[in-house]
């Protein structure tokens, strides 16, 4: 499913060998790629997230509506409907500055059977994945993106955001969105309803999900639940919890029993992709069909950029040393030339 770190590094080192001579002459302190990568981040102790099980989703979009209510987001009118739709019908096409959570549909051929790759269809929910090693946080120059040290929830702070949109560009899942239409716009993204969690309430999307397709819980627990589901076969009867795993927050919700209809893809999306994400996904169709990045390394891209930056600017030692040399040379040459 993903390029291993080792493979990626091997390729990088091979590339490095070819260009080694150039580096030497270029004078850039660029060591071997292997040495350049900073160690990947690990999951915070009480990391929480969502488990979205596409095979349970019925596409009712209650979560889309609940998300709008919980976060006070306006209706998102599809460009084609602006002529007649005056906000009576919310019709988002994708995550946007007005939509923090959306249900997308995969279709193929006759679309006859749910969770089937050919001639079938499948639902897919999109919201912030709350990466273990988020690109947006590494990218943001003013620390406007933060990751809670305990829950790992990635939040945005518009009070200091300068609107450079590097987070928008860098996110591998296309999650942070900027409101380009507002002259004083801001970045919008799912923050796992941390304002509701603070009130001991479930995130909006989980609160309303009728089938438990979206579950809230500690990422470790969600992963165990996902592992359990991967052992289920079509035709098995199984109990599926709703709301928060373990009944938190806000008390236990009734679970429901269901015959497993579709065969699960034997993979938990988000377990390893790009260093792992706190929100996990299960699906009946291959994840690349859901337009999720699948052929990706098992480490976050910030390990590379921060590795390069770290190697060069570690405690600003290198720049200071280089500056010292430059000062000496310049002191001599500036005198000489003028």
């Amino acid at each position: 499913m993903s390029v291993s770190r080792r493979d990626f590094l091997r390729k990088a080192v091979e590339g490095g060998a070819a260009a080694a001579a150039a580096v030497a002459s270029g004078g850039v302190p660029e060591a071997e790629a292997a040495g350049l990568q900073r160690p990947p981040r690990t999951l915070p102790p009480d990391a929480v997230g969502l488990l979205y099980d596409g095979t349970l989703c019925i596409g009712c979009k209650a979560c889309v509506k609940a998300c709008k209510d919980a976060n006070g987001m306006p209706p998102d009118i599809h460009a084609d409907q602006r002529g007649w739709n005056q906000g009576t019908w919310d019709s988002p096409q994708d995550l946007s500055a007005k939509t923090l959570n959306i249900i997308k549909l995969y279709t193929d051929g006759t679309m006859a059977v749910k969770d089937r790759e050919t001639d079938g269809y499948a639902f897919s929910k999109r919201q912030c994945q709350h990466c273990t090693d988020p690109s947006c946080i590494s990218a943001c120059p003013v620390s406007a993106m933060t990751k809670d040290p305990s829950t790992g929830i990635v939040s945005h702070h518009p009070d200091r955001c300068i609107g450079c949109r590097y987070c928008v560009l860098s996110c591998p899942f296309g999650v942070p969105k900027f409101d380009f239409e507002d002259p004083f716009g801001r970045i919008h993204k799912c923050q796992l309803c941390n304002h509701r969690l603070a009130e001991n309430k479930l995130p909006g999307c989980v609160d309303v999900c009728p089938t438990g397709a979206t579950l809230f819980g500690r990422t470790a627990d969600l992963e165990r639940e996902a592992e359990r589901r991967l052992t289920l076969k079509p035709g098995d009867r199984a109990v599926f919890p709703r709301g928060g795993l373990g009944g938190t927050p806000g008390g236990a919700r009734p679970s429901h029993e269901k015959v497993v209809a579709a065969e699960y893809q034997q993979h938990i999306y988000g377990k390893s992709e790009l260093g792992g994400t706190q929100c996990l996904m299960l699906s009946g169709v291959p994840f690349d069909k859901l337009n999720l990045p699948t052929n990706v390394p098992d480490y976050g891209y910030p390990t590379l950029t921060e590795g390069i930056q770290g190697a060069v600017y570690q405690s600003m030692v290198t720049p200071v040393v280089v500056l010292g040399g430059l000062l000496a040379i310049a002191h001599r040459n500036v005198k000489g030339s003028d």
Binding site: S138, A139, C140, P141, S143, Q309, G310
Partner: peptide
């Protein structure tokens, strides 16, 4: 905000 020390994110290439 770019120049406010306690806002600066040292790992940001952009900064």
């Amino acid at each position: 905000a770019m120049f406010v020390p306690w806002y600066m994110n040292p790992s940001s290439v952009m900064l």
